[in-house]
Design a protein around this nucleic acid. Structure first.
Lengths: 339, 339
DNA sequence: ATGAAAGCGCTAACAG
DNA sequence: CTGTTAGCGCTTTCAT
C-alpha cells in the first residue's frame, strides 16, 4: 500500500519550502519556471494527489456542488437535469455530490445539512413534495452557501430559481386541446403543495375560462401517491354518466398510468378519451399510443442552474448578487394520444 | 450572515477545553454526563455544525462513499441501484457522492481521482463500456480506499464484486425460447468489451448448443451505439431470405428499439418475430407488446455492494479482507413479446 | 473525567 | 521569486 505523498514530502525531496511547492502546483504566477517544472515533474513521478480536505479547510473554499433531488428513478426529467448539472460543473472545475430526498422533507433537511457540513461550495435543490418550510435553505444561505432552486421551487424565496413556465405550458396545452374541439377536459393534478402543480392547474383553468367553459363543472383530481390514486381517479370518472373527452395529466408518468388503465378497460385513446402528459419523458414516445406532452428542457435547466450557482459562488466576496429567476419555455409535442 | 461556530467557540463559552467538547459531541464514554449535556445543549442552541473537512483531516476518516456509474438517464437499472446504495449508506451513517462516467474511460479515471482526493472512505464502481485498463482501481486500493465493483465488473480484478449471474440469466432466457419452439434465434449483443455482454452471449450460445443447434448459423450482432446500430442490425436481418423467429437483446433498451422498429415495419411481435430484453426495466411493461425480460435485483445489488464496501472500510485496519463475489440470480419475466 | 499540546495537509499573509 | 509563520477546525495521545 503506497504512501500518499504530501507537499511536505515534495518540498523535502526538492530542498525547497512547502509554500513554493504549493504555489508551483497551482500555477501561481510568481514562481520561477524552472522550479515549477521541477515540482510538477516530481509530483507526476510520485503520483502526488492533493488532499482536498486539507486545502478546503485551509482556504475555506471547496469545489463541490451539492444537489438535492426528490428522486431519480421515476422521472427521467431529474436524471436529465443531473446530466446538465454535471457537465456544466465539470467544465467549470467543480465536482457534484448528488443526494436524493426521496420526496421526504426530513431527508431533504438532512441532506442539506450534510452538504453544508461537508462544506459544499453551493447547493442546487429541487424541493420534495412535502417541503413547506424553508429554514434549511435559509440556513445554507446564512452559512454563506449559495442556493439555486430548480423546477420545484417556491417563488417567494429570496434565492435564484431556474424553472419552466408551468402556467404557460399548461395553458398552451389546454388551449391546444380546446382548439381541437375538446371541451370536457378532466385534470389530474399533482400534489397542490407543489408550486408547479398549482401553476399548471392555473394555466389549465385559465385556458378553459378563455373558452367560456364553466370551470366549476370540470373534473379535477389531486393525485398524491402514484399508481393507486391515478387509477382511482380515472375509475371514478368512468362511473359518471358521461366520461370526459380528454384527461390532462400534470406529469407524463401519470399520463402513462392513465393510458394503461384505459387500455385495460378497453377504452380507446384518443378515440374515446384523449390523454396528455407534461415533461417530455422518452416513455411518451414508447407507449402506444404515444402521448402528447409539453417538453421541458431538462438538460439546459441543469446547466443554467449550475452556471448561476457558480456565478454566485464566485461573486460571494461582494455578497448580494441579486437572485435571478430564469424561466424556460416548454415545447408542445403533439403525438397520438390526442387527435 | 451567521457565523459558523466551532468547537473552540463552544469550549470558550462553557469554560472547558476543546477536547472535552469534541468528546462530548461524539458520545465518547469517559465524559461526565453533566458536561456532556451542557455541551450538547449549547451546540443545539447555537446550531453548531461540525466541519467535516477538519474532522476528516484530523482523523483520517471520512463518511463519504463515492459511486461511479456509466450513466443514469438511459438505464433504469442504475437509478435503482443508486437507490439501494443510498439507503444502505444512510442506514450506516455514510453519505454518497455520485459521479457519472458517461461511458467514457477517461472520465471514469477522472472521477476516481476526484473521489480519492476528496478522501472518500470507499468507492463503488460500475465500469464504463470503454474501460479496459484498471490502474485507477488499483490506485484507489493502493491509497487505502476499498473498491467494490457492481454489475459491470471484471472477474479477474482482486476486488469485491456484486453481480448477477449473466451467463445463467441468458442461458435460461434462451432455454425458455427454445422450449417454446423457437429455433432460429438472433442475438443483439452489447459491446463485447464488457464482461457482462460476453457472459450473456455465452449463456445464449450454450443454450443453443444444448439443443444441438448449429451456433455457427446464428445471427449475432454487436451493437455499440444505441439506436442506429440496433436498427441497422434488424434491417439487415430482415433483408435475409428468412428472418429469425426471435431476437434476443442484451438489454431492455435495445429490445425497446427493436420492437419499435419492427412495428414501424409492420412486423408483428410476437407472431412474426419474438423479442426479449434483459434487466427488468419498467418500460418493458409499458410498451406494446410488453417485453419478456430477465429481471435483475437492482436495488438489492446496490444495498449488497454498499454493505460489502462498508465492511471493508471498517475492517481496513486489519487489511486484507478477502474480496468476495456476490452473485444474484435473475428472474424470468414472461410477457407479451414472446408466445 | 478533563486539559494541554501536537498535528492532519494545505493556504496565505508577510518578510525578505 | 522564495521561505517563514500562522493558522483552518478537529482528533488524539499523553498527562493530570
Amino acid at each position: 500500500m503506497k504512501k500518499n505523498y504530501t507537499i511536505t514530502d515534495l518540498a523535502i525531496r526538492l530542498g525547497i519550502s512547502k509554500s513554493t511547492v504549493s504555489r508551483a502546483l497551482k500555477d501561481h504566477p510568481d514562481v520561477n519556471m524552472a522550479t515549477r517544472a521541477k515540482v510538477k515533474a516530481l509530483a507526476e513521478e510520485l503520483n502526488y494527489q492533493p488532499n482536498l480536505l486539507a486545502s478546503g479547510l485551509a482556504s475555506k473554499k471547496s469545489y463541490i456542488i451539492g444537489v438535492i433531488v426528490p428522486e431519480i428513478s421515476q422521472q427521467h426529467f431529474f436524471a436529465k437535469v443531473l446530466e446538465g448539472i454535471q457537465h456544466e460543473a465539470k467544465e467549470q472545475g467543480y465536482s457534484v455530490m448528488i443526494c436524493q430526498s426521496d420526496e421526504c422533507f426530513e431527508e431533504e433537511v438532512n441532506q442539506a445539512q450534510i452538504l453544508r457540513n461537508n462544506r459544499a461550495a453551493g447547493v442546487l435543490i429541487s424541493l420534495s413534495r412535502e417541503t413547506q418550510s424553508f429554514k434549511h435553505i435559509e440556513n445554507l444561505k446564512n452559512s454563506g452557501v449559495p442556493v439555486v432552486l430548480f423546477d420545484r421551487t417556491v417563488s417567494e424565496l429570496p434565492v435564484s430559481q431556474v424553472v419552466v413556465d408551468d402556467y404557460k405550458g399548461a395553458f398552451e396545452l389546454t388551449h391546444y386541446l380546446l382548439e381541437k374541439g375538446y371541451r370536457d377536459i378532466a385534470y389530474l393534478s399533482g400534489p397542490m403543495s407543489l408550486e408547479i402543480s398549482r401553476h399548471r392547474y392555473e394555466g389549465y383553468l385559465q385556458a378553459l375560462r378563455d373558452y367560456d367553459i364553466n370551470t366549476a363543472d370540470s373534473r379535477v383530481y389531486e393525485c398524491l401517491k402514484l399508481s393507486s390514486d391515478v387509477k382511482e381517479a380515472v375509475r371514478k370518472m368512468l362511473l359518471e354518466p358521461k366520461h370526459p373527452e380528454a384527461i390532462m395529466c400534470v406529469h407524463d408518468y401519470m399520463a402513462v398510468e392513465v393510458v394503461r388503465y384505459l387500455k385495460e378497460r378497453n377504452i380507446q385513446v384518443p378515440q374515446d378519451i384523449a390523454v396528455t402528459g407534461f415533461a417530455g419523458d422518452p416513455v411518451t414516445d414508447i407507449i402506444t399510443p404515444t402521448i402528447t406532452t409539453m417538453k421541458q428542457p431538462a438538460y439546459e435547466m441543469g446547466r443554467a442552474a449550475t452556471a448561476q450557482l457558480i456565478k454566485e459562488i464566485n461573486a460571494e466576496d461582494w455578497d448580494e448578487v441579486p437572485a435571478i429567476k430564469k424561466v424556460f419555455d416548454t415545447v408542445l409535442q403533439i403525438k397520438a394520444s390526442t387527435r
